[in-house]
Design a protein around this nucleic acid. Structure first.
Length: 477
DNA sequence: CTAGGGTTAG
C-alpha cells in the first residue's frame, strides 16, 4: 500500500515534469517586451538564465532602449537572479552604441560591486566604440587606466587594444602605442600580426613589409597567419602582381599554404577580374589536396556573380550542394544579391525561400537590407515595406541602415502618402534609439511640407524638441 | 574581443 502510494507519487511527479511548461522562448519574450509599453513589468515566473537573457539582448540589439530597460528591470527587481558577466558586456555594448556614457560607466561600476568584472573583454568593447566613433585617444586612455577599474593589463589585452585600433583604421595610433609599450608587454607574434594587418587594412603594404622585417630582426618568426595577412594586403591594395608573386614564394618556401591562403588568392584574383585564373587556382587547390571550405565556395560564387554571370554562380552553388557542403547565410546572401543585381527579383525571392526552408538559415539583416535596397531603388515601396514588416516580426530587427534605405526609397515615387510613411519611420527609428542624420531629418520634414502634410510635420517637430533632440535646433516651420 | 579567408559600393 505504502509502496503503491510512493509509486503513484513518483509517477505523478514524473507526469508533472512532463506537463511543465516548455523552456521559455526568447523570441516570444522579446516580442512581448517590444510590444508592451516601457513601464510594463516583466513576465513573472520565468526561469531566467544567462543564456536566455543573452539571446533576448541579442534579439533586441537594434532596439537599444528596450533592451537596456529589460536589463535594468531584471537587475533591480529580481533578487534571485544576478546578471552574468556576458550579459553585462552585451548591455555595455548596447549602451555604448547609443552613446550613453553615463549608463556605460554605471554598468561597469555595478559589475565591479558584484565582483564579476569588468574583464579585459569589457574594456575591449568600450574601446572599440571609442575608436570607431573617432575617439582613438579615449580608447588608448581606457586601456592605460583599466587597472584603476580593477582589471589588469597583460599581453593579451595589449594585443586586443592594438587590434581594436587597427580594425577601426586607427593604425597610426596603434603603431604609436605598439612602439611605446612593446618592450613592457614583450610583444609576440600575435602583436606583430595585428600591426601587419593594420597597415594592410589601410592599404599601406610597404609599412606592413617593414614591420614584417622588423619582427624577423627581433627574433620573432612570422607564421602562416603573418603571410596570409600580407597576401590579403597585396590583393586589397590592388597589387595583384605582388600578391601573385608572394603566393608563389610561399609555395616555394613550403610555408604550408592552407585553405585560407587559397581562398585569399581565389577571391583576390576574382575581384580584379581574373576569373579564369581564379578558377584555375580553385582547381589547383583541390589537386593539391587542400579541401575548399564554405568560405572558399562563397568567394568563388561571389566573384562569378560580379565578374562573370550569375548563372555560372548558381552552377557552382549546385555543385557545392552535390558535394555535401552546407551553405551558410553568406552563401545565400551573395547569391541573392547576384540575382537581384541581374534583375532576377523573382529568382532572388525564391532563393531566399530556399535559404529558410531548405537551407535552415535565417535571413540576416544583410539579406533584408540588400533586398529592401533593390526594391527601394526602383520604387517598389510595397515590396520594401513587406520585407520590413517581416523583419520586425522575425529574428532580426531593422537597424540604422534599414531605416536609411527605406526612408530614401520613399522619395522615389514622389507621392504624398509615401512622405507620411517616411515620417512614421523617422519617428519610429528615433524611438528605437537611432540618431538619424540631419540630412535625413530635414529631407523628410521638407517632403511632408511640400506635399501638404504640415500637420504631421509639426507633430514630429514638437515631439522631437520635447525630447531635446539636437536635430530640431536648425529647423523652423 | 589573443592574429589570417566569403556579404556593400564608391
Amino acid at each position: 500500500m505504502n509502496r503503491l502510494f510512493i509509486k503513484s507519487l513518483c509517477t505523478s511527479s514524473a507526469a508533472g515534469a512532463n506537463l511543465k511548461p516548455p523552456p521559455p522562448d526568447p523570441a516570444a519574450i522579446s516580442n512581448l517586451i517590444l510590444s508592451s509599453p516601457i513601464q510594463s513589468p516583466l513576465p513573472s515566473n520565468t526561469p531566467w538564465t544567462p543564456h536566455l537573457v543573452n539571446s533576448i539582448l541579442k534579439r533586441l540589439w537594434n532596439h537599444g532602449p528596450k533592451a537596456l530597460h529589460f536589463f535594468h528591470l531584471l537587475d533591480r527587481r529580481h533578487r534571485n537572479y544576478i546578471h552574468s558577466p556576458s550579459s553585462f558586456n552585451l548591455a555595455i555594448d548596447i549602451a555604448a552604441r547609443l552613446h550613453l556614457h553615463t549608463t556605460v560607466w554605471s554598468l561597469i561600476r555595478r559589475m565591479r560591486s558584484l565582483r564579476i568584472g569588468p574583464s579585459p573583454k569589457t574594456f575591449a568593447i568600450v574601446a572599440e566604440r571609442f575608436a570607431s566613433s573617432g575617439k582613438p585617444d579615449k580608447a588608448v586612455n581606457l586601456f592605460l587606466n583599466m587597472h584603476e577599474h580593477g582589471c589588469s593589463q597583460d599581453l593579451a589585452s595589449f594585443n586586443t587594444i592594438l587590434d581594436v585600433l587597427c580594425k577601426s583604421k586607427r593604425v597610426e595610433k596603434a603603431y604609436e602605442l605598439f612602439k611605446d609599450l612593446r618592450g613592457r608587454f614583450s610583444a609576440d607574434v600575435v602583436t606583430y600580426n595585428v600591426i601587419v594587418n593594420g597597415w594592410c587594412l589601410i592599404k599601406r603594404t610597404p609599412k606592413a613589409l617593414e614591420v614584417l622585417k622588423e619582427m624577423v630582426e627581433r627574433g620573432i618568426s612570422p607564421n602562416l597567419t603573418t603571410y596570409n595577412t600580407m597576401l590579403k594586403g597585396f590583393f586589397r591594395s590592388g597589387q595583384v602582381r605582388q600578391g601573385w608573386e608572394f603566393f608563389l614564394e610561399m609555395k616555394k618556401r613550403n610555408c604550408g599554404v592552407d585553405v585560407v591562403t587559397y581562398t585569399t588568392v581565389v577571391h583576390g584574383l576574382g575581384v580584379s577580374g581574373e576569373v579564369k585564373r581564379a578558377k584555375k587556382v580553385f582547381d589547383e587547390m583541390i589537386r593539391e589536396g587542400v579541401l575548399p571550405s564554405v568560405a572558399t565556395y562563397n568567394a568563388l560564387i561571389q566573384i562569378l556573380c560580379k565578374k562573370d554571370t550569375v548563372e555560372n554562380a548558381v552552377l557552382v552553388f549546385e555543385e557545392m550542394l552535390r558535394k555535401g557542403y552546407e551553405p551558410n547565410v553568406t552563401t545565400y546572401n551573395v547569391l541573392i544579391r547576384g540575382l537581384f543585381h541581374a534583375g532576377e527579383f523573382t529568382r532572388g525571392e525564391e532563393m531566399m525561400r530556399r535559404m529558410e526552408e531548405e537551407g535552415g538559415c535565417e535571413a540576416s539583416f544583410q539579406t533584408y537590407n540588400m533586398m529592401i535596397r533593390y526594391y527601394s531603388e526602383c520604387g517598389e515601396v510595397e515590396k520594401s515595406l513587406g520585407l520590413f514588416e517581416r523583419m520586425g516580426s522575425g529574428g532580426c530587427l531593422p537597424n540604422l541602415d534599414t531605416y536609411n534605405i527605406l526612408i530614401s526609397g520613399m522619395f522615389v515615387r514622389k507621392r504624398s502618402e509615401d512622405m507620411v510613411v517616411a515620417g512614421k519611420l523617422l519617428v519610429e527609428m528615433v524611438e528605437r534609439g537611432f540618431v538619424p542624420r540631419r540630412f535625413t531629418f530635414n529631407r523628410v520634414l521638407n517632403g511632408l511640407l511640400l506635399t501638404g502634410n504640415q500637420g504631421f510635420a509639426k507633430e514630429i517637430l514638437r515631439s522631437q524638441s520635447k525630447s531635446g533632440s539636437r536635430l530640431t535646433k536648425n529647423f523652423r516651420l
